[in-house]
């Protein structure tokens, strides 16, 4: 597994796209800090970028990487290596290199601007953790889609649709249904709906730190318990982990049965 991981990692480390992605975050970090003058404001701007972009990049790269390395995967399949090892190795290699780009690319500018000595270090850290999870989740989801679709145009289409759905449409429907069922108590339902979408979940995780004062403005008891105690943090983390583990398990299961 380590060998396959090294394989994909080495392959990606030489890929132009990894550098572009890394450079993008580097430039983004410096630009935000330059324009905003304060770490706190830069972090707030960064929320949107992370919440929207890491899933998109994870999805695109995941699908692209799967299809592009298909022939090589076949070469690996003929080697004395377990199937699950091959796919997990590739998955981890890609996810780690993407999240590495994120952490290092943003870490450098924020470090230069003194994040380690500021009070915002935890906000920033939590943001990176959210980005880290989203990368792992969306690479896993896109691998799933690619594994189930031989046709790469279809695979790409489904992946982008999935991203669009989870990043935008889901929240639209969510908001719409909240407004339609306004007369009912909705706090449990809205928390539940949040948890079902990894992007929302990662967003909530960040809000817990950055917008807790607003979140506590709502009167519902379940809300108060979720956001006012450690329960929110623990639940969010647990479910994020599940969001990684379940798609990865499906990759393994699907890979075992698939013909190449």
């Amino acid at each position: 597994m380590i060998r396959i991981l090294k394989f994909s990692f080495a392959d990606l480390a030489r890929s132009r796209w990894s550098y572009i992605y890394f450079a993008f975050y580097l430039v983004l970090g410096f630009t935000l800090l330059f324009l905003n003058e304060s770490l706190g404001k830069a972090i707030v701007t960064l929320i949107n970028v992370i919440i929207v972009l890491t899933p998109l990049i994870g999805t695109m790269f995941g699908t692209m990487y799967y299809y592009n390395s298909k022939e090589f995967t076949e070469l690996l399949l003929a080697q004395p290596v377990k199937r699950s090892t091959i796919f997990l190795g590739q998955y981890l290699g890609l996810s780690l290199s993407l999240s590495g780009s994120l952490v290092v690319g943003l870490g450098i500018p924020f470090f230069v601007y003194g994040i380690t000595k500021s009070g915002e270090i935890w906000d920033f850290g939590l943001l990176l953790v959210a980005g880290f999870f989203l990368t792992f989740i969306f690479v896993a989801l896109s691998f799933n889609i690619a594994l189930s679709n031989e046709n790469r145009i279809k695979g790409f289409g489904y992946s982008i649709l999935m991203w669009l759905f989870l990043a935008v449409i889901y929240d639209g429907l969510f908001l719409l249904s909240l407004m339609v069922f306004n007369d009912y108590p909705l706090d449990k339902a809205s928390l539940f709906a949040t948890v079902l979408n990894p992007i929302d979940l990662a967003r909530i995780l960040v809000l817990l730190k950055l917008d807790i004062s607003a979140l506590l403005g709502y009167t519902g008891a379940v809300f108060r318990k979720f956001f006012g105690t450690q329960l929110g943090l623990v639940t969010s983390f647990t479910i994020l982990i599940l969001w990684v583990v379940l798609p990865v398990l499906r990759i393994v299961r699907k890979a075992k049965k698939k013909d190449f």
Partner: peptide
Amino acid sequence: SYLPQIANFPANM
């Protein structure tokens, strides 16, 4: 030992 029909390798290696 297996020689596949289409030899396609990781582009960046």
